[in-house]
Every structure is written in C-alpha cells, then in structure tokens.
Design a protein around this nucleic acid. Structure first.
Lengths: 132, 132
DNA sequence: TTGACATGAAACCATTTGGTTTCATATAAT
DNA sequence: ATTATATGAAACCAAATGGTTTCATGTCAA
C-alpha cells in the first residue's frame, strides 16, 4: 500500500548514469526532453527505430533517474531530470586539474623554485579561474 | 577545395569517451593512472581479472585517447591523458542549467506571486534539499 | 645463447545490449 | 458496446562486451 511516491533525491539508480549516457540514442533522448515533456509516441518519431526500442531506452534512462515519467490518460510522458548528472560532474571535477596543463606548468613554476620572483606568474595565474 | 578534414588530428577517438568511461573497471584504471605512469604488469595487479583483460581495457581507453602508452624496454607504460574529458565537460555544461535552475523554479514561483495556482509550491520546494 | 619476463594477438565463450515483431492491456472516441 | 490509440511486456535475435586461456614475439638477465 504505502506507495513512497518517489519523492526527490535518492534515485535508486538501477542503471548507473555512466552507462545510461554511453549510448548516443539515449543522449539524443535527453536532449529532446530537455525542456519538453513528451509522450513516447512523439518521442519515438524523432529516432530511426521502433517505438518499442525507444521505450526501452527511456526505461534505462528512467532507471538511472535521468528522466521522469508521468502517466496522462493513455499516454506516458517523459521529461528530463538532470539531477543525476551531478554525479558525473563531480567525477569529472576530479580530473579537471589534469587537463589544465597550464595549471601544472604554473604549479611547477611556483613549487619548484619559490626563491625566484613570482612576477613571472601573472599571465599563468589568469588560467587558474579558467572556468566560469 | 582542401577539405578541412578533421584539422585537430589529436583525437581519432575510435572509441568515444562516453563509452570508454561507462565501464567501472575503466574508471578505476583512469584513477590509478592519474599521476603515475605504470606498466601493464603493475596495473593489472590492482584489478581482479587477468592481465590480458586489463590490457584490453587499456586499449579501449587508449582508443578514446584517455590514456597514453609508451614502450620502455620490454614493458608498456600507461598514463592518464585527461584531455578528451573536455568533451564530456562541454556536454555536461549544457545540462548544468537544468539542475542549477531548480532555484530558478522557486524564484519563478515566488515572483509570479502564486496567484494562479499555488498547489505546486510545496512539491517544488522539496527539490531544493537535494544539495550535494 | 639460453631462459625468464612483459606484453599483445587470437581464438573462444557467456552475458549484455540494442533492436525487432507480436501480444496484452488500459484508455479514449464513436 | 465496439473500435482505435498508446503503451509496456515477452520472446526472440545478431552483434558487442567483458572475460578467459593459449600462443607468439620482443627484451632483459645469466
């Protein structure tokens, strides 16, 4: 009886987000549903495959929490739920410092010889806030 | 006339980065190689599978450009190359507004003065708690 | 030179994946 | 009440995936 009603957060994530976004069709689905809630019928019209196939992709996305479904009459409408992408973001964040090579250059500069003048740094320093 | 034909030449990406990071073992590999260049032998010691299996994962990562290999004597050493993750980052960036803007949802709600329909308010407010 | 070590390639296998077609069910429309 | 629509579930299938074992090759050490 007690239907937990799927509140917020804590998505069970039977399919993890990494796997969910691995498929290009699925990424296309996310993009399509980014600001519109659409029924399966309409959604599948955008992809070169069966409605059933699209439906299965939607299920995988739903399992990963990336999409929310809502029954309206005889149709099921889906819309994006970007929340689980936060996990991706935090995973990515860890690696960001490893592609900002300029940052490493600066770091080496600062760490390896602190005795020298720090005046050479300004140009490099700008790179530190690279991202908005 | 001379077709630009993939100017960058840096990212052949036979395997795309989305698929490459979909596998947990592969993500583990990236983490392991984050600041150390290691030979296959040592790398495989960290995973519960055959050296050959690890080697194949490394190949997939290499194909996606996420790892660089270098032959040293009779061993092949691998190290992280985070650069291709930029693609992921930019893909993600597009979706960021769809989770950051939950604040905006509230803002819109408050600003519209709720004169039309206030029933949605409590549900929306709940979404705010999902903060990392 | 001979033998041990490090590795990738190949052949093989079980499971998962992405897709299809067919069928059942619930809701809308006539 | 009957028919049409929207959808998911099931059964099925080919290809990809993740793994294994075996083998060949190149390099280091004795």
């Amino acid at each position: 009886m007690s239907k937990p009603k799927q509140v917020s957060a804590a998505a069970p994530a039977k399919h993890d987000v990494f796997q969910a976004i691995a498929d290009p069709t699925r990424r296309g689905l996310l993009q399509l549903l980014v600001d519109e809630e659409l029924p399966v019928n309409v959604i599948s019209g955008h992809f070169p495959m069966t409605r059933t196939a699209v439906s299965k992709h939607l299920r995988i996305l739903a399992d990963a929490g990336l999409v929310r479904e809502r029954k309206v009459g005889r149709e099921t409408r889906y819309k994006l739920n970007a929340d689980p992408l936060r996990e991706l973001k935090s995973w990515l964040a860890f690696y960001e410092r490893y592609w900002e090579n300029k940052l490493d250059v600066l770091k080496r500069l600062v760490e390896s010889d602190g005795s020298e003048q720090a005046e050479a740094a300004p140009a490099s320093l700008k790179l530190l806030d690279s991202e908005s």
